[in-house]
Design a binder for these strands. Structure first.
Lengths: 231, 231
DNA sequence: CAACTGCCTTCTGTATGCAGCATACTTGAT
DNA sequence: ATCAAGTATGCTGCATACAGAAGGCAGTTG
């Protein structure tokens, strides 16, 4: 492999989406890169992942790529068949719905815990995220909105103080990111999602566990109804 | 590496705990083997995992071992530090408790779904497992009891018909297996756990979602109280 | 005597090579 | 013409080799 390709590959990976100076191992870079490729559809569902080709494309050799694929396999984004390599997992509508049911349950639990355990600082930070998200909604920046949306949900979970819950949530989320991204297609859908977020934040501010928990569950279920036609 | 060691290693892995003729990749063998070593305490918490030594011990080269470690890292059983290798993750009492809270929530959800979706055959199979587990209790075979106990919980989850729930549960479980195993130390604790299982099975037979869901949560919480002194 | 620096050892991170297996294609037979 | 069998190609699975980094130890200096 020529050095040019290597540098290009590593360079593009290193500057992808992390901070600037943080030590970024090739492994992490490949994992997040391939994960993004799956989420964004560059690697479509059902695609056979060819170690040689993808490695050449990313500018890395097969070994670290294989390690990354094993990692992604344990997240369920990729399926490995012995002797036949890796394919991007296809998520059926039922898979998505099942995952959302679990997600709703997890976020509802997180909400209840967060109302008790979150610090005032955390509440305020989440409200700030919410305000910034509203800005993105007003200016129509879907991608930034999407990232802030995710950040809010994750931040509420984190403020629950239950690390295992955060881990499980983080594990389940990747397989839903693509579909949640699609969930805000269309202006009226987007408006509905924003309205639900208003309820959520209001309940969180008041530390009203019952309302927050219910609002989050309903928000996720509503998201399902918004997106299920698309899938 | 001499061939002797390789054969010995692969042989011991291949015959470890899977069925006889099922095609078993080295990767899966290593993953389950190392996982067992962690659960059984052969690899104690906080132990530095030395790729060379462990690979030599298992009779495999570093490459598949590294892939397995990456896999286990994404399960959270092992922590990887760039440039400094892998250490067996130490679970604090809080980690365990947090995980159990999540587990209880997941099993409660599974219970509710199972009461609706389980087939009569599945219900009967689970009752059979329960009967066999009681036999193991009476004859004092802790290891077999433990395996059947796990099998019952997993089977109820599976009968919910929610694959994502099964996946998440299966992902969370490994980090709790060691501690759940410890949870039945002492005869009166064991008796209490068995009594709780009686309630669970009775509710499941009647497809009483509310009772089953509550019984499972309480069973897990009771398990925590039984074990928390030990940790 | 303590602290710092430079070297050395050892381990991780990555690449490459080799062997076995799966699949596809080709050829021959019915 | 179709099906089956054999062969060939290319991919995966694993091992090993090499390079770079981290940590330890010793020697030297303040």
């Amino acid at each position: 492999m020529d050095q040019q390709t290597v540098d290009e590959g590593i360079g593009s990976l290193a500057t992808e989406d992390r901070g600037p100076i943080v030590r970024q191992t090739l492994h992490d870079a490949i994992v997040s890169r391939v994960r993004d490729m799956i989420i964004e559809g560059t690697l479509a569902s059902g695609t056979r992942v060819h170690e040689g080709n993808l490695g050449r494309e990313l500018g890395v050799s097969r070994t670290p790529l294989r390690e990354a694929l094993k990692f992604l396999a344990s997240e369920g984004l990729i399926e490995l068949s012995p002797g036949r390599g890796a394919v991007v997992r296809e998520f059926t509508a039922k898979d998505i719905h099942d995952s959302l049911i679990v997600l709703a349950q997890l976020e509802a639990l997180g909400a209840r815990l967060a109302c008790v355990n979150a610090t005032d600082v955390q509440v305020r930070e989440i409200c700030d995220l919410h305000e910034r998200m509203l800005d993105m909604y007003r200016t129509g920046e879907r991608r930034a909105y999407f990232k802030l949306n995710q950040a809010i949900h994750s931040a509420i979970l984190r403020s629950s103080g239950n690390d295992a819950l955060v881990d499980v949530h983080g594990w389940l989320l990747p397989r839903l990111r693509r579909v949640r991204y699609l969930g805000h297609e269309g202006p009226e859908n987007w408006a509905a999602a924003v309205a639900e977020h208003e309820v959520i934040i209001a309940a969180f501010k008041k530390r009203d566990a019952a309302t927050l928990s219910r609002a989050l569950s309903e928000h996720i279920e509503a998201g399902w109804h918004r997106m299920k036609g698309i899938i």
